[in-house]
């Protein structure tokens, strides 16, 4: 895959940052406006997928390698679980309780509000963005010769 024509490449180069930035915005505003971790993560993944479609494998590999995205994917999932376990290890707090709300309530309709929900949204955003990109890459670049020999 060497990529598409020059027009597509140029436009993709221009708008990739905007798409990524919009995805991050949706993730960070998840507790205030419609959207959140999943929707924002899909938009983040779309910016990487667009680079892969426009430029081909080598360039996309430079932006975010497959191994790197796999590690980030796992990191996001572990982060969600650890945020859930945070409350579990404190006395008088159940599993997946909103611990941060007790210490740092913030004020409603501001970025710092709703306790640990923005953190969970961020972790979900990382997980979904890199996970979707990993799915796309592994489906697009599957090589049949890796397959085991038929018996």
């Amino acid at each position: 895959m060497s990529g598409m024509t020059g027009i597509v490449k140029t436009v993709a180069e221009w708008i990739k940052g905007f798409i990524l930035f919009y995805g991050v915005y949706i993730v960070l505003q998840g507790h205030l406006t419609p959207g959140g971790g999943f929707a924002g993560g899909v938009i983040i993944a779309c910016s990487f997928i667009m680079m892969e479609l426009a430029f081909g494998k080598q360039r996309a590999e430079k932006e975010l390698s497959e191994h790197g995205s796999h590690l980030l994917d796992e990191f996001g999932a572990i982060a969600i679980l650890l945020l859930g376990l945070w409350g579990y290890f404190l006395p008088q707090m159940p599993f997946f309780s909103n611990v941060l709300l007790e210490y740092w309530p913030g004020s409603p309709f501001h970025i710092i509000s709703a306790g640990s929900i923005p953190l969970i949204n961020l972790a979900i955003g990382i997980k979904v963005g890199t996970g979707l990109y990993t799915i796309f890459v592994s489906l697009a670049e599957y090589k049949p010769e890796l397959q085991e020999k038929e018996e």
């Binding site: 796992e74 999932a77 572990i78 679980l81 859930g84 376990l85 579990y88 159940p94 599993f95």
Partner: peptide
Amino acid sequence: PAFVAIPLLTALVLN
């Protein structure tokens, strides 16, 4: 919750 959290954590670390 440990019966859900421990296997999940093990699975993610193993990955």
